[in-house]
Design a protein around this nucleic acid. Structure first.
Lengths: 237, 237
DNA sequence: AGGGTAAAAATTGCCGACACTTTTGAAAAA
DNA sequence: TTTTTCAAAAGTGTCGGCAATTTTTACCCT
């Protein structure tokens, strides 16, 4: 039919729902910090600002709720999830186990191309460290780990990892921003590449696991005051 | 104000949104098989049958989408997710790693009460096996594993596990329904309890991991034809 | 028959509206 | 000043409706 075009098609021609776009927008805002933990997502003003209705926004928020980025309270709306220290420690704990598992898989499966890609990322990170570009390092660092997970060819593993990574995002940035942490982290990446090239599954698993736990500890060290009471209940294996 | 009551309050007085109720209803229907993989969720008829509008249903479906139980296609709606064999193998793989990790945690953390609860479940399962009550065994079996994860006190670990378990639900039922599988599974539970009482972390991890992989293999054996081409790419560690 | 095609029906995508609940804030009470 | 009250404002929960799209049906041509 040739009535006026009611729904302006998405800019790049890719037909997809508004809800999906809003989902991504909110996800980014939460991850980048434009929406802070505890903030309420005001459906009405959010909708009005974009000239859309609240339906798609609520749909997007429901997805974010299930993803753990947002919390829903009846008659009060959606709130950006507040991660307490316990959450962070839990996530690092699972994350370490997932990396250990990924290491075992990659011991048998990693290809030369993949090693080359990781090596290139590592070299970029080393450069970023020398240049003091913490933000760049952080971005590359995320990618480094993400690629490792992708190389396992286990989509569920990779998806679960990405979900945890998203939850941690803000917190981890805090930990890596400190120069010493960045250098230590980069050195560990070098070790990871070494053992990946050699190929002993247990050793690879151990190194990846240790790297994740070291990251956790680096984060903890940025907030010594709040940690004491939990520390003893969350020691290493 | 004293206008007519527009929203009949939820039967049991617990104030919560329709969307949440629908989410649970759909989740159950999918898990129990009332909705088969590939089925479309017809928003309109689903809404009309319950005398509600489509809004809450779409919100519920968005959550199910993020949970991986449902797939969304623009302009075509929500479809119950179809798990192919590859998905199942992926999930069992991650699941085994999570159980191994849970085992390491429980080696230090499990209490006498928790061991007693698991032992009681195990005994019930043994009884169910003798009585040939596969459905009862299946229910208790799910609970056994769920409790193990809960005992780790790591909510993220437990949540991720529950998510995977939900995805696997229908497939695993198929595997356990065979009598020999049930007996083997129950015997492994006995071994799990043994090693949990002794407390060597690596051994516990190994036994839990093996139990999960054995479950995967039991499932694979119920579908020998479809498996051959994948088998060699998915061998054990 | 078979295969294509176009109108009709069914369904999704989104919006505007209104009942109901929570929050705000200003006046009244302590 | 601090607390309480309570009504207005703001915001959520859900609905009904209409445009756009997809699916079905009915028809035509070969």
């Amino acid at each position: 039919m040739t009535t006026t075009e009611l729904y302006p098609s998405p800019e790049s021609g890719a037909a997809q729902s508004i809800a999906t776009g809003i989902y991504r927008e909110l996800e980014t805002m939460i991850i980048e910090g434009a929406l802070a933990p505890g903030d309420r997502i005001n459906e009405k003003s959010f909708a009005d600002q974009r000239g859309i209705s609240r339906g798609p926004i609520r749909e997007a928020c429901r997805r974010l709720e299930e993803a753990g980025l947002v919390e829903f309270k009846v008659n009060r709306g959606f709130f950006v999830r507040v991660l307490d220290l316990r959450d962070v420690l839990e996530i690092y704990d699972v994350r370490a186990a997932l990396f250990a598992h990924a290491g075992r898989i990659l011991a048998r499966r990693i290809t030369g191309d993949q090693l080359a890609e990781l090596t290139a990322l590592h070299e970029e990170m080393e450069t970023a460290v020398e240049a003091g570009e913490a933000d760049l390092f952080y971005t590359l660092n995320r990618r480094f780990h993400s690629r490792i997970m992708a190389f396992t060819k286990n989509n569920h593993l990779a998806d679960i990892y990405e979900g945890l990574d998203r939850e941690l995002h803000i917190w981890r940035k805090r930990a890596l921003i400190l120069d010493g942490n960045v250098r230590a982290s980069s050195a560990e990446h070098g070790l990871i590449l070494d053992v990946l090239r050699n190929g002993n599954p247990s050793r690879i698993a151990q190194v990846l696991r240790d790297h994740s736990l070291a990251g956790r500890n680096r984060l903890l060290r940025t907030m010594p005051e709040q940690v004491a009471w939990l520390q003893m209940d969350w020691d290493d294996d």
